[in-house]
Design a protein around this nucleic acid. Structure first.
Length: 575
DNA sequence: GCCGTTTTCGGCCCGACTGTTTTCAGTCG
């Protein structure tokens, strides 16, 4: 049973959690968390690196010890250290660590002094008044824990980026309108375009902190104020979303934004670089001794440590700092680089709008082309097209194109990949099209081997152009099906076909890491909206954010090409 | 546990806020 990078990263994270509970050296704990992040972000499986004889200790933050542990994990899936830690620490402790306000010290006290082995026992201990007798616990801790236990058992839901956006946009407008406020901007994982966010970080610049904090805590959607000081505050909106606010003077905008954007690992790495140059970097600026030498813009912060500006989506300490130092930062793709959309549904199947309506909206967005890709017959719930109806749709598109609609409509299909790897429509029918987008829409639970074979076989069909939503995941709702993505990516390279980054905010499939793997393999990506209603064409922005996290440049994107360049690329797949 | 034009030992990012204290530990980001 092969051990994959996410499994290895998970084991390293577990070790960090358990070491934390043991009260181990915090820097040792950080080393394990770092290693987990590095492994997670690798474009290549550890097992493959080992086969190639790669020395893992060359990876950043991985020394001799961790290299040995990681290779043990990759080979066996087990590690004596992890087994020992699991044996000596009750499982409940790990769960308690996730509750708000509980760190390792308090968890130890609860487990040890109160003899608590499950959440039920903790609940009883609170009700009996035994918790508040512990040193370090008072009425506030008691009620906070009680609430966490009663509501969602302490596991906070992460919010999809699109939903977060709907809360953030009006809040930012509200803050900007406040008296004395200079500007307001969202930082944190939201600014880095992570596919989901745990909370929202907002930076406000204002001459004085307290009035801005006050204004913030009085926002009408605030359900609860968790903390409020002179320069920062934390609230929970009625929706349950936590929002952190920080206020700094306008002069400190750059250093504050750089710091609050994170990621934590990136910030630490930047501050260490500063340290080596005899600088101190905090949210208030860059300092040499007592002298402030910069921090009004983010670029100043990076310049102080000898680096060019690094885009927020790259700030994960996954090699961007080394790339910046070497002058090899990618020039990330932008929304305005996209020349069209290659995955759109019309009213003929489960879409809401006619082809003419879609063309009008596409043209208004400045697109050069739009591919109509309705479903195939297998997807009966979507009223999928059989050959006869598809040929009718082709005729309709030809008719509209003949009328010079100001945008080129491409004739496509989203064809089902059947469980045996055949496509849902015969080759001679698919041959009439400009492109064939192919998807898995059922039989998600095949074994990794069978699912991979199924897709590889489909890719071998003569007219296969783009593999749509390659892992089938729905964020927070459905796990990706088990599929060997490195193999799929290699096959796409060999076959000369393309992978889709489905930009629907529920999917965002490819992930950032898969994007990076595809880029390294030289496989072009189609950033596509999978639109079912015309306004969803705007969802491309989420796909672009994800692509940027995956280091994707304009040249790596199929639909960043104009029609003249795109057409031969599509024809190449129609063999 | 990692790392090194100060170092193979002794550092390791840095600050704000809360709650429980009676001057600060713990937690969080």
């Amino acid at each position: 049973m092969p051990v994959h990078n996410p499994d290895i990263a998970q084991s390293l994270e577990s070790i960090a959690d358990l070491l934390e509970l043991e009260g181990a050296n915090p820097f040792r704990i950080r080393a394990y968390r770092n290693a987990a992040r590095v492994v997670q972000g690798l474009g290549t499986e550890i097992s493959v690196l080992l086969q190639r004889g790669k020395d893992l200790s060359e990876l950043p933050g991985i020394g001799k010890d961790l290299a040995g542990k990681i290779s043990d994990l990759a080979r066996t899936g087990h590690l004596p250290l992890l087994d020992r830690l699991r044996k000596s620490t009750p499982a409940i402790a790990v769960e308690l660590l996730k509750l708000p306000g509980l760190g390792p010290k308090r968890v130890q006290a609860i487990c040890h002094d109160l003899d608590v082995h499950n959440l039920e026992q903790l609940h009883r201990a609170i009700l009996d008044g035994r918790l508040r007798e512990l040193r370090g616990f008072g009425p506030a801790a008691e009620s906070r824990l009680l609430q966490a236990l009663q509501t969602r058992r302490g596991v906070p839901q992460r919010l999809k980026l699109a939903l977060a956006e709907s809360y953030v946009t009006p809040l930012i407008a509200y803050l900007k309108a406040a008296p004395g406020v200079d500007t307001a901007i969202t930082a944190g994982s939201y600014r880095r375009c992570q596919e989901t966010v745990g909370d929202i970080d907002i930076l406000v610049t204002a001459k004085s902190g307290p009035p801005a904090v006050k204004h913030f805590t009085r926002y009408e959607e605030v359900g609860k104020v968790t903390a409020a000081g002179d320069t920062r505050a934390t609230v929970v909106l009625r929706s349950g979303l936590q929002v952190d606010l920080r206020v700094v003077p306008p002069r400190d905008y750059g250093s504050a934004l750089q710091y609050f954007t994170g990621s934590k690992a990136h910030s630490i790495a930047i501050r260490r670089l500063g340290q080596k140059r005899g600088l101190k970097i905090n949210e208030y600026g860059v300092f040499r001794g007592k002298k402030r030498i910069g921090g009004t813009t983010e670029a100043e912060v990076y310049r102080a440590v000898g680096l060019p500006y690094i885009e927020p989506e790259l700030r994960e300490n996954r090699g961007e700092i080394e790339a910046a130092a070497a002058g090899k930062l990618p020039k990330l793709v932008k929304l305005e680089d996209l020349r069209g959309d290659l995955h759109v549904h019309s009213v003929a199947t489960d879409g809401h709008d006619t082809i003419r309506q879609l063309a009008t909206v596409g043209r208004a967005r400045g697109y050069e082309y739009l591919a109509i890709t309705d479903h195939s017959r297998r997807l009966t719930v979507a009223h999928g097209l059989d050959p006869k109806r598809l040929l009718k749709e082709i005729e309709e598109i030809d008719r509209i194109n003949a009328g010079k609609p100001g945008i080129a409509l491409l004739k496509g299909i989203e064809v089902d990949i059947l469980p045996d790897g055949k496509l849902d429509l015969p080759d001679d029918v698919l041959g009439h099209l400009d492109l064939v987008v192919a998807s898995v829409h059922g039989q998600f639970n095949l074994s990794r081997e069978k699912q991979t074979e199924r897709i590889l076989r489909a890719m071998e069909r003569p007219h296969f152009t783009i593999l749509s939503h390659p892992t089938g995941r729905l964020i927070g709702e459905r796990e990706p099906y088990d599929v060997d993505m490195p193999r799929i990516i290699r096959a796409a390279r060999d076959r000369g076909c393309f992978l889709e980054l489905n930009a629907h905010p529920d999917r965002l499939d490819l992930t950032d890491i898969h994007c990076r793997m595809a880029k390294e393999a030289g496989v072009l990506i189609s950033i596509a909206s999978d639109t079912h209603r015309a306004p969803e064409l705007a969802n491309l922005r989420f796909g672009v954010g994800q692509a940027r996290r995956g280091w994707i440049e304009k040249n790596d994107v199929l639909n960043a090409r104009g029609l003249a360049e795109l057409a031969p690329l599509l024809r190449r797949t129609m063999r």
